[in-house]
Computed example of a mutant assay.
Amino acid sequence: MKIISVIPARYAASRFPAKLMQDLEGKPVILRTYEAVVRTGLFQEVFVATDSEVIFDTVVSAGGKAIMSLKEHDCGSDRIAEAVSSMDVDIIVNVQGDEPFTDRESLAGVLAVFQDDIDKEIDLASLMTQITDPEEIDNPNTVKVIVDNRNFALYFSRSRIPYPRSKDENITYFKHKGIYAFRKSALMDFQRLPMLSLEATEKIEAIRYLEYGKKIKMVETHVTGIEIDTPEDLERAKKAWK
């Protein structure tokens, strides 16, 4: 199998504009993320796919590989699908550009799903981590996921799922981490299929795969890292980096 990683990198961000170009101890966030993915040694190639000449030039000038998007895209899956459409690859791993603490163990976990999938039953694999902060459970910026008894995703939501109607139940809540491993065929399908109501309501691209019957295998990880969504996250990242 040929396995690559593509990091979608949009310059604009509603909560933290230009966050990927913010300095993280001497290098922009996007470059720290790119280098972290390369360091895992899991991929034949690693690319950044971006709509920004600034991000493109930053990656290339540092010796990295970048692809300039030809169209406007609403989500990372669409951006990656355009970037890899003519590539002869089997598995594409999407790592978010604001994940400079990306680790090898977690990425190896999602790739192992496909190595064990003899019947090619699985379309995507992704990561989840147990929520330990009670405030995150009701935070709409934290995407929650529920799974079946084989760890296939049933649904993703910004709301609390499952809802604890019985207070006697001991419920474990899981946060969806935005790292995906796709079969190329599933990614190409995503690009051509229109958004349906659930995805439009929740604003979670993973739901489109479920709405069209794709199977997403979730892998639990205990590595939380720091996703840089706000200026406060960046300050936490700087302290952690030191």
Rank of each mutant, 00 (worst) to 15 (best):
A153G: 06
S77N: 11
A112Q: 12
P100G: 12
W241P: 01
I131E: 10
E227W: 02
D189S: 14
P162H: 09
I30T: 11
Y34T: 01
V46C: 02
K238I: 06
G109T: 07
S77W: 03
V95S: 00
A108H: 05
K184I: 10
L107Q: 10
E205D: 13
F16H: 01
A62W: 00
S126M: 07
A108N: 12
S61G: 05
G64H: 08
T172I: 13
H222F: 07
D116K: 15
K217G: 08
D168N: 14
F101T: 03
T50V: 03
V219R: 03
P8E: 04
M195N: 06
A18T: 08
T102Y: 04
W241A: 15
D103H: 03
S85K: 14
S69Y: 00
G64Q: 06
V145M: 06
T201F: 14
M128C: 04
S5H: 01
D229M: 08
R183I: 05
F152K: 01
A9P: 12
V37I: 11
K215V: 01
T230K: 04
S197W: 11
Y163K: 10
I204S: 12
D90Y: 04
L124I: 08
P134C: 14
K239R: 11
P162L: 06
I207R: 13
F156Q: 09
D23R: 05
V54S: 11
S85N: 02
S159G: 13
Y155A: 13
A240H: 06
L193M: 12
T201Q: 15
H176S: 15
A81D: 09
D90K: 09
A153H: 00
A181I: 04
I122N: 09
I92A: 00
E169Y: 10
G41M: 03
K27W: 07
I137K: 12
P17Y: 02
G109C: 11
D138I: 08
D57T: 13
D168V: 07
E121W: 06
E227Q: 11
D116I: 04
S106A: 14
S14W: 01
D23N: 15
L111H: 11
D57S: 15
S61N: 15
V29T: 12
L127N: 08
A153F: 02
K27T: 07
D51N: 14
I55Y: 11
E45P: 04
D90C: 00
R160D: 00
V46F: 00
K215T: 02
D90S: 13
Q44Y: 10
R236K: 15
I137M: 05
V60K: 13
Q130T: 14
D119Q: 14
E72H: 10
P162I: 05
F47M: 12
D103I: 03
G41W: 02
S52D: 03
S166G: 05
I91R: 04
A83Q: 07
R236D: 13
K239Y: 04
Q191D: 15
S157K: 02
L20H: 11
P162E: 09
N151C: 04
Y212V: 06
R32V: 04
K19R: 15
A62L: 01
M1S: 15
F152N: 02
L127S: 07
L107T: 09
E121C: 04
K214D: 02
V93L: 01
G109H: 10
L24Y: 08
D103K: 10
Q96W: 00
A181Q: 05
I7G: 09
V143W: 06
A12E: 15
A66P: 06
Y180C: 07
L127V: 00
K177R: 13
Q22H: 11
Y155L: 09
P100Q: 12
K65I: 02
